Amino acid sequence: MALRMLVFLGSSREGRMGENVAKCVVRMLKEAEQEVELIDPLAVGGDGHVHQPMHFYRDQNEVPEWMVATNAKIAESNAYVIVTPEYNCGLPPALTSILDNFPPASYRHKPCGIVCYSMGSFGGIRAASFARPFLSELGMVSTPSVCVIPQVVGKFTDEGECTDERIQNNLEKVVKEITWYGQAIEEMKSKVGVPS
């Protein structure tokens, strides 16, 4: 069963390394025959940061069109993968802001894989540890495996090809897990719905 998936890119800074990592994740998910789209905080609309979350507009007719369109993609998707750097031992504001723009109900009861990276030797693992409770609060279920990418510079081409065998193997594990969890949850939803 093909799943609809979104890959969230968590960086908006100039010279970001995550763009090539995200391209790789998108390509690998497509090779696994999933329907995939990249959500880039610099491309969706506004400036990618929370000013007024969609679900807090008193008049829903005033919600910007980019929010309506992006929320529809989130709600229609079966699974997600976040690609995040580590900022100050935590999650980058571009990631939390883009996700916080939309109501938790749009994410609820769906799995999310985590891919983290950094220019240093820890590979963004501290960001991944913050991501789990954050994603859970939005209603997502994070999958067990995390792909940790230390010293990311030079490990991905501009086309999104991974040049490191260990990282490639770990990315394949994340792709397999998010596909398995996505299919398993969708099967349960079709049989018994979601918990209420």
Rank of each mutant, 00 (worst) to 15 (best):
61 N>K: 10
52 Q>K: 11
58 R>N: 10
191 K>L: 15
68 V>P: 00
158 D>P: 10
20 N>S: 14
186 E>H: 07
150 P>R: 07
128 A>R: 06
93 P>N: 14
72 A>M: 10
141 V>D: 01
99 L>W: 06
52 Q>A: 00
51 H>I: 14
168 Q>C: 06
80 Y>D: 03
28 M>L: 15
85 P>L: 05
37 E>P: 13
33 E>D: 15
4 R>I: 12
126 R>N: 00
66 W>P: 00
96 T>R: 12
64 P>I: 06
35 E>Q: 15
171 L>D: 02
35 E>D: 15
67 M>G: 02
124 G>Y: 04
57 Y>D: 03
89 C>M: 13
159 E>D: 13
72 A>F: 09
142 S>A: 15
8 F>Y: 08
185 I>P: 01
142 S>T: 14
87 Y>L: 03
9 L>F: 01
175 V>E: 01
23 K>W: 07
47 D>F: 12
172 E>R: 13
89 C>G: 08
149 I>T: 04
187 E>D: 11
109 H>T: 13
97 S>A: 12
35 E>M: 12
71 N>E: 13
14 E>C: 04
102 F>I: 05
143 T>P: 05
154 G>Y: 05
44 V>T: 14
93 P>F: 03
2 A>W: 02
128 A>T: 03
92 P>C: 07
90 G>L: 07
49 H>I: 04
165 E>N: 14
143 T>D: 05
36 V>A: 06
195 P>F: 13
162 C>F: 07
62 E>R: 08
39 I>E: 02
95 L>R: 00
63 V>P: 01
139 G>H: 11
4 R>T: 14
100 D>G: 06
154 G>T: 04
169 N>G: 12
165 E>F: 08
152 V>K: 00
84 T>H: 09
145 S>R: 15
34 Q>N: 14
138 L>V: 08
78 N>F: 02
90 G>C: 06
79 A>R: 06
50 V>A: 11
54 M>P: 03
172 E>D: 11
11 S>F: 05
86 E>W: 03
152 V>L: 05
191 K>A: 13
122 F>W: 07
122 F>Q: 01
22 A>Q: 06
76 E>L: 11
188 M>T: 08
131 A>C: 11
44 V>P: 10
176 K>W: 08
14 E>N: 09
136 S>I: 07
31 E>H: 15
108 R>M: 10
144 P>I: 14
22 A>L: 03
124 G>H: 00
169 N>A: 15
6 L>M: 13
75 A>V: 12
169 N>I: 02
74 I>K: 03
177 E>A: 07
81 V>I: 15
82 I>E: 04
109 H>R: 11
117 Y>S: 00
178 I>P: 00
62 E>L: 01
18 G>S: 02
193 G>S: 06
139 G>V: 04
142 S>N: 13
132 R>D: 05
195 P>R: 13
38 L>P: 02
